[in-house]
Amino acid sequence: MKAIRILRRNISSAFKSVVRNFSLSIASIACTAITLILVALAVVLTINVNNFTKELESELTIVTYFEEGTSKEDIDATIKRIESLAGYESHEFKSKEDWKMDMQATSSELNTALSYIENPLLDSVVVKVSDVTKLSSTAKEIQKLEHVSDAKYGEGMVDQVITIFKVVQNATVVIVIALILVTAFLISNTIKLTIFSRRNEIEIMRLVGTSNTVIRLPFIFEGFILGVLGSIIPIIITVYGYILLYDHFKGYLFTNIIKLVNPANVVVVVSIVILILGSIVGMFGSYRAVRKYLKI
C-alpha cells in the first residue's frame, strides 16, 4: 500500500514536471517521435523483405546449360562441383531431350520443326539455391565452372529490388542508432533540468531519510512519460500509413512480384516495438541524467 502511495505521488510529480519544462519536453518528444518513425520504417521494411524473400524461395532456381558435346562424365563432375557451392540446395538434371519434349508439347509448329532436325538444344541442370540473397553469387560461381555455357536465373529485377531494400535497411539501422543516441541525450538533458529545478526538494527528501530509489523514481518516470508520449505519433503514422499504402497498391508494391504483408500482421508488431523502444530510450536517458546529476 505504501509502495502504491509513493508510486502515485511520483507519477503525479513526473507529469507536473513534463508540463513545467514544456519546451524541452516538447523537443524531447519530437526527437523521440522522429527516431521512432524511422524505426517503424525499418521494421516495416524488414518484415516485408523477410516475407517477400521467403515467398520467392520456392522459385529460386538457376538453369545451368552445358556446352555442346560435353560428355556424361564431365557433366556429372560439374554437378558434383555445383553441389559443393555455399548456396546449393538441390538440383534436377534436364537433358536436351527433356527440353525438346517440353517444347514440342508447347506448340505443334515447334513439334514438327524439331522432329526433322537434329536436337539443337543443350543439356542442363536446374539448381535450387537455399535463399534469394545467394542467387546471383551462386549463379556467378556456376558460370565460372568448366563445361558450363551459361547460368541463368529468374527475374533480374527481383535481385535489384532486394539489393535496394537491403541498402535502405542498413542505412536506416545506422540512422536509427545515431538518432537513438541523440534522443537519449536530449531526454537526459530535460531530466537534468528537472533535477536542477527540484534540487531543494531533493535535498529535503534526503534529509528526512527518503530512500534513494524513491528519490530517483520520479525522474525515471518522467523519462518514461517522455518516451511514451514520443511514441504516440509514430504509432498513429505507422498504423494509418501502412494501411493506406497497402490499400493504395492493392497489396503489391511496384510490380506484382512484391507482395506486401497484410496490415493486421504488421501494424500491431510495429506499434509494440515502437512503444517499448520509446519507453526504454526515455528511461535510459533519464537513468543517465540521474546517475550523473543526482548525487545522493
Binding site: A3, R5, R9, L207, G209, V214
Partner: peptide
C-alpha cells in the same frame, strides 16, 4: 531556511512524510 516556495506551510512540513510514503 530551505523552504519550498510554492508549497504552503502545511505542505512544506508534510512534504517529507509524503515522500516517506505515509498515509
Amino acid at each position: 531556511f530551505k523552504l519550498l516556495p510554492k508549497l504552503t506551510v502545511y505542505e512544506n512540513v508534510a512534504f517529507g512524510l509524503e515522500s516517506l510514503g505515509l498515509k
